[in-house]
Nucleic acid binder design. Structure first.
Length: 352
RNA sequence: AUCUCACUCCA
């Protein structure tokens, strides 16, 4: 069962969720008893798989209980994060309260997962209440807790609060890392405080904290919004000399900044360059391309990319359709817009 | 053998 569990985990990591699910069935048919870890892996599989797998998660939890298995920190955080991905905050709260009423004492990992889903959903008062509760229960916050608090403030637009926590972490014995800095830099950038963001970026480096690809992507995105392309090139060169390879998000970020009047030529060029560098497009890349062409005023290219996206085997999502409609609306082609709406409905999406 | 934090796309 250990070997099978390892294999299940490998499938999960590779996003081969259906393979994991069928292997899990096979395991049970062979008469092997899944362990707590096996169940935890499967909960994670259903948590990451799209569609309506929440019921499946509940039935797995039932099955675990029927087999006499007690949940642990892995189980709890996995289930809570699964709720978060689906926007099922109430379900997460219910699950958490049930845990406690059954006598489970939540540990820091469970608290962290709850804090992160509330924070990500923009409910920062609730997120902060989790922090309060964990401290009251003598649970010691760790670096992830602090990073989540900083990210929660940052997302809510409270960059000063975020920066304050960043500065005070060290006094609690927890050093800010590249994740902490990236959160606050991003908050400054989103608030139009480019100077503060760049200052913090320099400060982190001066303090010996090494920026990673996410940090660089954050800076690139911020500069891109302001069309500061010269500085973007400097950043890309700095990445290169620091041995930090651009990832798909880096390319998507650069593509997004090409969505400006008169920059239409660059969209296609950057996309080609991306592929030449061995970075394959994902669904976000196609959404970015559609939006970028729309901003360039080229609805025709946007429609072309949509076809390319479908041909490449990616399923359009609501964002895709909204971006496409936006692109088409710019040229006033209501006929094309109606057919996109139709297409959207046929694929099971409701306009929002 | 398993979990929780930051970066890109429409609005």
């Amino acid at each position: 069962i250990r070997s099978y569990t390892t294999l299940l985990h490998a499938y999960a990591r590779a996003c081969n969720y259906n393979k994991a699910i069928s292997l899990f069935e096979e395991i049970k048919q062979k008469g092997l008893s899944p362990t707590l870890v096996t169940y935890n892996v499967m909960l994670d599989v259903y948590g990451r798989k799209g569609g309506r797998s929440w019921d499946k998660i509940l039935s797995l939890l039932d099955e675990m209980r029927n087999n006499g298995l007690e949940v642990d920190e892995f189980t709890c955080s996995t289930v809570i994060s699964a709720c978060g991905r689906r926007g099922l905050l109430d379900e997460a709260t219910k699950f958490f309260n049930q845990l406690k009423s059954r006598g489970y004492v939540p540990g820091i990992v469970t608290y962290n997962s709850l804090l992160q889903i509330y924070g990500k959903a923009g409910n920062y008062p609730l997120a902060l209440s989790v922090f309060k509760e964990l401290e009251e229960n003598n649970c010691t916050p760790d670096s992830i807790t602090y990073n989540e608090i900083v990210a929660t403030y940052a997302r809510a637009g409270f960059y000063e609060e975020g920066a304050k926590v960043l500065d005070s972490m060290a006094t609690k014995g927890i050093m800010p890392n590249s994740i902490t800095y990236t959160s606050v830099i991003n908050a400054y950038g989103k608030a139009g405080k480019e100077d503060e963001a760049l200052f913090l970026f320099h400060r982190m480096k001066k303090l010996g904290c090494v920026p990673n690809v996410c940090t660089y992507n954050t800076i690139l995105g911020m500069l891109g919004k302001k069309s500061r392309s010269k500085e973007m090139l400097d950043i890309l060169l700095e990445m290169k000399s620091n041995g930090c390879s651009p990832n798909r998000v880096t390319w998507n970020t650069v593509l997004a900044m090409c969505g400006k009047r008169g920059m239409e030529k660059f969209v296609g060029r950057v996309f080609e360059e991306m592929k030449n560098c061995g970075v394959g497009p994902d669904r976000d890349t196609f959404n970015t391309l559609i939006a970028a062409y729309g901003r360039c005023g080229s609805g025709a290219h946007a429609l072309q990319i949509y076809d390319e996206m479908v041909k490449a085997g990616f399923s359009p999502c609501l964002t895709t359709y909204n971006a496409l409609l936006n692109a088409i609306a710019r040229k006033g082609d209501w006929g094309a817009a109606e057919s996109v709406i139709l297409d959207m409905r046929n694929n099971g999406f409701k306009p929002n």
